[in-house]
């Protein structure tokens, strides 16, 4: 896995580089927009992490230029800019948007689902399957071991998101943003209660647990193999 990091703050850059090297990824670093543009056009990367505020060529312009040039590499904006419209226009060209300060586990999880290596489920698939759990996106039904399970619309969206990223950790914030459209941190444990309800429906009474809690990071659904 090869990642391009464009970040002008030395300490933040070191923190990110160290984190990704520990996971075995190759990471190139550019400290400003110009250098970032050069690297991005010279080599091919699996993912780009771009700070939005950079000296000279800013991150937004950098990615706009790359996109205009046909570059489709998954990119995530890392930014201290969290204005009302910033997220919306940032997501128009980037695949994800993470506001500083952030936890490394959050960034790793987000880059992880952007990359989706291996035999991943695709967003265009009509059904998602994990072990004996099948989610039909058109009929909006869920079955485990052939047995229909009734879920509410939000539970369906939650399960759909987990299964779309099976084998990858999804964080609480990712769920909030993608399942509930919450771009803020609620003060009640809505994620935990929804996940626990969903678990009680799809895991209870079946042989293996499919939804796992990843301590300190989030949740993951996989075959449990």
């Amino acid at each position: 896995m090869r990642i391009l990091l464009v970040e002008d703050d030395r300490e933040t850059a070191d923190y990110i580089i160290r984190g990704f090297r520990e996971t075995g990824a190759v990471i190139d670093h550019a400290a400003d927009g110009q250098a970032g543009l050069m690297l991005a056009t010279d080599a091919s990367y699996d993912a780009m992490i771009i700070d939005r505020m950079l000296p000279g060529l800013d991150g937004f312009k950098l990615l706009s230029m790359l996109r205009a040039g046909g570059n489709r590499t998954p990119a995530i904006f890392l930014t201290a800019v969290s204005g009302i419209d910033d997220r919306v226009n940032g997501l128009a060209i980037a695949n994800d948007y993470l506001v500083k300060p952030f936890a490394f586990a959050e960034l790793r999880a987000r880059v992880g689902v952007m990359l989706r290596p291996g035999p991943a489920t695709h967003t265009e698939d009509a059904t998602y399957q994990v072990a004996d759990l099948v989610l039909d996106r058109l009929k909006r039904t869920v079955k485990r071991a052939g047995k229909p399970i009734s879920v509410q619309p939000t539970e369906f969206r939650l399960l759909e998101y987990l299964m779309q990223h099976k084998g990858h950790v999804v964080t609480r914030t990712m769920l909030l943003e993608n399942v509930w459209d919450f771009n803020f941190d609620p003060k009640t444990n809505i994620v935990e209660t929804h996940v626990s309800r969903l678990r009680s429906k799809i895991d209870r009474g079946f042989g293996s647990e499919l939804i796992h809690t990843v301590r300190g990071s989030g949740y993951m659904i996989d075959d449990g193999a």
């Binding site: 619309p153 939000t154 509930w180 009640t188 444990n189 809505i190 209660t193 929804h194 309800r197």
Partner: peptide, 13 residues
């Protein structure tokens, strides 16, 4: 509707 759905489990708890 959405808000009610989101907070229903928390309220129920």
């Amino acid at each position: 509707d959405e808000i009610a759905q989101i907070y229903e489990p928390v309220a129920a708890e």
